[in-house]
Simulated assay, not measured.
Amino acid sequence: MFPPGSLVMAAVVLLLGTAAVAQTPNTKRWRRVERAIVLSAGSGEPVQRLRLAPGVVTTVLLDSDAALEGELPEALRGLFSRLDVTGTHLLLQPTVVMPAQGVPPLVLRFTDAAAPQRLVLELTTEANVVDSVVDVRRHPATVAQLEAELVALRERNAQLEARLVAARRQVPQPGLAGAILSGAIGPERVLVKWMDDPASEAGLKVLKLRSYRSSSWVALAVKLENPLGEAPWQPGIARLISLDTNGRPTGETMELPMLLQEPRLLPGQSAVAVVQWPAPTRLPSAYALELWDTGRRRGARWARLKP
């Protein structure tokens, strides 16, 4: 006969032993694989997948001494019973299956001057395969790889320079602020003149015309309408021809951009087009003005204007 307390003690020991067996990882279910990884200095810094399994020790062999880059992420601390970097070896033994999300990469930095300088490991767990030994070797970049990397860097620099130019460009200000900041208007007055000079129209209708003149700039604002039944009108260029007192060209012709709020005029649509140019020290007797679409087939022409 057993003493009365011995049966209770035996039951407790049996239950604890059963729980311990249940919590022990089944390391036999994973097939162990040994493989090699070759890192090329000219291939950027790809992330390498490292397959881990609970209770299984994975060894990463390095071709040079390395150390963890920064502190071990807090999210990794509770996942491993062993995580050591000693010289040219990285040893990992997880206690659990790697979560599908929220596991940060493990980053090692080599201590020598060879490239690449970093090894980025994505820690995962697969159904039945585990990396037991991974041999990491680095190869120097070839001339072709370095040339390709140089081309990519130049393209990236060009994109960054374009973004920098755009960032430095002043944001247009509404109202009079933009004109004041740019110096388009100052203490001198701006002369505004409504003009009723007839225009020769070719597939485009002129509704209104007025001129603006300051000490620095001259501008013409034309309200245009694309008649119904016509194709969309795409603004092209404006030609401004200086005329002498007899109405003959002086030989000075400017091709200027036409500024519209809309990218094009649809049939029946109207909008104001603005043409501006720096005010000359001495205005010519008159100008001839031509407004054309991109194909120079449809537009309007004034034989003589005095802004």
Rank of each mutant, 00 (worst) to 15 (best):
L220K: 00
L106H: 04
E201V: 05
L15V: 10
G42Y: 03
P278F: 02
N226F: 05
V171R: 12
R29L: 13
L228T: 02
V134E: 08
V222R: 01
Q93T: 12
P54W: 01
R301L: 13
Q269D: 08
Q234K: 14
Y287L: 00
L121K: 02
R138V: 12
G299C: 11
G247W: 07
P104I: 03
D84P: 11
L83P: 07
S211Y: 06
P73D: 09
P257G: 05
A148E: 08
A271F: 07
T86N: 09
R168E: 11
A113D: 12
G78W: 06
V275H: 03
L259W: 08
F110W: 01
E122R: 08
L68T: 00
T142F: 09
R31G: 14
E252R: 15
V129T: 09
R282G: 06
V57Y: 14
L61V: 10
R304E: 06
R154H: 13
N26D: 09
G268F: 09
T18A: 15
L50D: 00
E149F: 12
E45K: 13
T59G: 04
R264M: 15
E147T: 12
D196C: 14
R210N: 07
G87T: 15
L181P: 08
P172R: 06
A184L: 02
L108D: 01
S6R: 15
A279P: 07
A202T: 14
V129K: 15
G251K: 02
